[in-house]
Design a protein around this nucleic acid. Structure first.
Length: 431
DNA sequence: TACTCCATATGAT
DNA sequence: CTAACGATCATATGGAGTA
């Protein structure tokens, strides 16, 4: 049976979240910056029109942006995550089969819907999401995830589609016409390098890729690209993943507000990042068998002495206990740390994750002590969930936070903090 | 020879 | 005033080491 899959994607997600709560930002050029106010990661259409590029370092366009009155906001992930949850739960009502693909987009299975109803159904999604959250979305429909992605892309780019594009119902020539107008590099799964490689073989457009010989593609590019070719031809190869599989790796890293050189700051940051990673680990009921710690100077400062190093430590017994994980991480840090360098970033990762339930009993750890660890961690997690992050933390996180990232212009947590909502009220009513 | 392990590259958002 | 360039996940790949 031919399938029908929709891809719903919020337009300029982070900027749109900010606008939903701050109408002053409407019709203005607005950008949202990455952590540490480093790069542009979301742009309003007005900001795009000014030529501000995705991923551009903010300091490079700051002067120009000031000239045009561009609003630049620090990213507020608490707000975006909450808004994302609202959108996803609204969309879940439109189909029993949903794959949450990223913070701002999801696939819905619409197989079996009458073609004549699809557009109206998509329109209903758009209006309902806008009414209930204030966020604008585009809907793309196709026979495969790859085609749904393309449909969404087309809906976003051409105003005449009104934010809605159904490729599952159009004539072959018409589809081919649209694919011909699209570069191969814009197809989902084809990045810069692969686009170059394709171009070298005479495959320039999405239509060229669709018409390429799958056998040849498999030989020169591998299975992944072959699947893309099939998907472009309407044969489903990449199915919906409704239940998110547990992560195989958990990473926590951050750039510092200002470079640091002292061991103490690095140790504090590593403790914090490992604590975060361990929370995530317990959240998905896994234990880690390997940890990695790394620190590095800025690769962009070519005039400065460079140093970057990492250490990977296999754990004797897999664990999810923050205390053990931090202990090992600091042990590793001590070994790779060298004084006198200007470090700009540190991070940890947890690897070889296995389900906690399937973990074999360890000969050297008594079941009793392992139960106590689990109970303690669960209690800490619950207290922190209820009373706020870091209500309970390890002392090695320290109290001096001078190294923490810059967030010069962050909006209030409109949806997750009463205190900050009240603060907004005061502002709004002080004429 | 075939597999595992590891670092690196690439892609997505 | 100055200096200022993200985070997190997945998979592919190729070489080195190993059974």
């Amino acid at each position: 049976m031919t399938r029908t899959i929709a891809l719903i994607d919020v337009n300029n997600f982070y900027v749109s979240c900010e606008r939903a709560f701050n109408p002053r930002l409407k019709y203005q050029p607005v950008v949202v910056l990455s952590n540490n106010d480093g790069c542009v990661i979301s742009r309003s259409n007005e900001a795009k029109a000014l030529g501000i590029k995705m991923g551009e370092p903010w300091f490079k366009c700051q002067a120009m942006a000031r000239q045009y009155g561009v609003e630049a906001l620090s990213s507020n992930y608490a707000l975006y995550a909450d808004m994302s949850n609202r959108v996803m739960s609204i969309l879940a009502d439109f189909s029993p089969h949903q794959e949450v693909y990223s913070i701002d987009e999801c696939f819905l299975e619409l197989t079996g819907f009458a073609q004549k109803d699809l557009i109206a159904y998509g329109q209903l999604m758009k209006t309902r999401i806008f009414k209930w959250t204030g966020l604008p979305v585009c809907v793309g429909v196709g026979a495969t995830k790859t085609l749904a992605k393309i449909a969404n892309n087309i809906a976003k780019k051409n105003i005449k589609f009104n934010g809605l594009c159904n490729l599952s119902n159009i004539k072959h020539e018409e589809l081919n016409h649209l694919l011909h107008a699209m570069e191969a590099g814009e197809v989902w799964g084809v990045g810069r390098q692969l686009a170059l490689k394709l171009k070298a073989r005479g495959i320039d457009t999405a239509l060229d890729l669709k018409r390429a010989d799958p056998v040849y593609i498999r030989q020169s590019f591998g299975v992944v690209m072959e699947k893309i070719v099939h998907e472009l031809n309407g044969t489903l190869c990449i199915d919906l993943e409704e239940v998110a599989p547990p992560r195989k790796q958990i990473l926590s890293s951050r750039s510092f507000g200002d470079a640091v050189s002292d061991y103490q700051s690095l140790a504090a940051s590593i403790t914090l990042y490992m604590s975060r990673a361990a929370e995530k680990l317990r959240g998905q009921q896994s234990v880690a068998s390997v940890i990695q710690v790394y620190i590095r100077t800025s690769p962009f400062k070519l005039d400065q002495a460079q140093y970057s190093n990492s250490m990977t430590i296999p754990l004797p017994t897999p664990t999810d206990d923050t205390r053990q994980l931090v202990k090992m991480a600091l042990w590793a840090l001590k070994r790779i740390y060298k004084p006198h360098y200007s470090y700009v970033k540190a991070g940890v990762s947890l690897g070889d994750l296995i389900s906690k339930a399937s973990m074999p009993l360890d000969f050297f750890t008594s079941p009793d002590s392992s139960d106590r660890s689990t109970a303690l961690m669960r209690t800490v997690d619950r207290i922190n969930a209820k009373m706020g992050r870091e209500s309970i933390k390890l002392a090695s996180e320290g109290f001096d936070r001078s190294w923490q990232m810059k967030q010069g212009n962050k909006s209030p947590n409109y949806t997750t903090s009463w205190e900050q909502i009240l603060c907004v009220k005061d502002k709004a009513f002080s004429f």
